[in-house]
Design a protein around this nucleic acid. Sequence first.
DNA 1: AAGTGGTCTAGACCACCCC
DNA 2: GGGTGGTCTAGACCACTTC
Lengths: 235, 235
Amino acid sequence: MRTQLRTIKGIIKEQIAGGLYTCQQKLPSERELSELFQTTRIILKDALIGLETEGLIYREERRGWFVSPPRLKYNPLSRSHFHRMVAEQQRQASTRVLDIKTELASSDVAKVLELKSLQSIHRIQRLRSVDNRVVLFVENCLITTLFPGLLQHDLSQSLTSLYKEHYGYHTVHSHFDVIPTAAPEHVAKALNLAEGQQILKICRVNYNQNGLLMDCEFEYWRPDAVMIRIDSNEH
Amino acid sequence: MRTQLRTIKGIIKEQIAGGLYTCQQKLPSERELSELFQTTRIILKDALIGLETEGLIYREERRGWFVSPPRLKYNPLSRSHFHRMVAEQQRQASTRVLDIKTELASSDVAKVLELKSLQSIHRIQRLRSVDNRVVLFVENCLITTLFPGLLQHDLSQSLTSLYKEHYGYHTVHSHFDVIPTAAPEHVAKALNLAEGQQILKICRVNYNQNGLLMDCEFEYWRPDAVMIRIDSNEH
DNA sequence: AAGTGGTCTAGACCACCCC
DNA sequence: GGGTGGTCTAGACCACTTC
């Protein structure tokens, strides 16, 4: 019988659907499962990776495999704050600031921000959780000249409202890209992923009411945690 | 040395970036590469899968591994025809009709189309290629009552223009979801993927000028072939 | 018929997490 | 220090594509 993989996936899937495991619950270890199914760890792992690809389960590096909660619905066009959006879906959000620095723009960032060369930017890295599960790594790069004294403010809150209250800016135009790709090293580490695991990358650029390019944002989502939902009426 | 994986990925990556392999060119076989790098096929395959996840290479089931061309930029909000969009990016598009039938809506489809129960739909499956590479499987489900005599028309062309010319409908409102997930069996087969490989699923629903729900569309993209690009000004 | 990737076996050590 | 997943070895047969 050369369809073990399929069978194993099917059985675990049924068990999850049937409620044997609940959201965010840990599955038995790979070794345990491979004994249960009388197969090797490699094949069992392939089965788990298959379910991970579907978005049914996820892993935390060296901690184990867990059942995925329902996907968050996310509209990158709406300027809603992360915390509000999550609350509207009856989930609980939290944010942790990882790092803030002012530095020279890397070539990637310079290109996105249309900077000439060797200009400095503010770089803010934050980690966001839904129901105590880390699902999103965000990096904001702000053009320094537009945000004097930025580092003195509380950056654990919404950047959108900070822009408005302290600088009088609001975003009137933005564009963004959604790209399925692999997690770069620093992202993988922050999200507790194995290096090179699949993530959903969203790259966006914001312009203020004067048409000035203000900042860009790189979002890296755990791919099972989110779905993009856009309605052509809602903007 | 326990970082072979990384090393192998790094080397192949450089070779691709350096132009040793060109777009859509086949890499040497897994066996050949594993000998070259003096490792097992399993590890070598893991390295290739890593590059696949990044979107640098792709595979065709049992045919081999190939270098990915640049991603197509795709805006699901714009009503542009597939062929026009591809042409605008200096690429070549083609479409093949796989199957057309009229049948009872499955429960999934009935839900999306807000059908009561046991209503019939027209189901059209098509396969789309860019530069002779199959990258997209599309399934359209149309509400039968709105499209009398549909099956008599040429369905290899754009559905949007068919709606307009033969039925006087145009889409004034739509919404869609973007979901990273695994390819269902029939999609995997059509796209030449191994079952359960990663794809990007886009699920959209269209309403006509009278506010009536007309049809829905399920798109399944090879994930390395596309990036979603949306501009808040462009609609 | 030969070659490809897909699946599979039966082990092993390593890096890191948690207790 | 015991348990977890991550990486790794050295093979094998199978299903399918290509010639």
